[in-house]
Design a protein around this nucleic acid. Structure first.
Length: 125
DNA sequence: CTCCTGACTCAGC
DNA sequence: GGCTGAGCCAGGA
């Protein structure tokens, strides 16, 4: 099923991809296995906490970005898998989370607060 | 250059 | 207590 990428590459090659998207990708990659984070947390880390939408939007190319970004570990503030519909199979997001030990019930991460991971909690920032 | 959209979040009703 | 509206920033057309 050849998917028609209308948006194709968000950031065409030729330039240094240190755009907002790259920032989000880096944070998302820092998410340890079995942990999840929220868009707002990443946004806040980037300084654009007022626009968590941008974080999620940046995830638009997460699955296409290299290395691959664990966008499935990124959920909304409520722990709900709002972005699961954007995955190839919408259920993939939940599958990956469950595979990592995260329980997902009704599109929502169980014990989200316990599994929550703070972007700068690693001490790198 | 202008308008629209978008995987969020908060506030109001 | 659930739904709606508005705000936010950044990038694509």
């Amino acid at each position: 099923m050849p998917k028609k990428e209308k948006l194709k590459t968000i950031k065409p090659s030729g330039k240094k991809e240190e755009s907002f998207f790259e920032q989000v990708y880096e944070i998302a990659r820092q998410i340890p296995k079995g942990r999840v984070t929220s868009y707002g947390a990443i946004a806040a880390c980037l300084g654009t906490k007022l626009s968590a939408r941008m974080v999620g939007w940046a995830m638009n190319g997460a699955g296409k970005a290299k290395p691959k970004v664990p966008a499935h570990r990124v959920v909304n503030k409520n722990g709900m898998l709002t972005g699961r519909h954007h995955f190839s199979p919408p259920e993939l997001m939940q599958q990956l989370l469950e595979k990592e030990g995260i329980k997902v019930k009704n599109e929502t991460v169980v014990d989200f607060e316990k599994k929550f991971w703070h972007p700068m909690d690693e001490g790198m920032w």
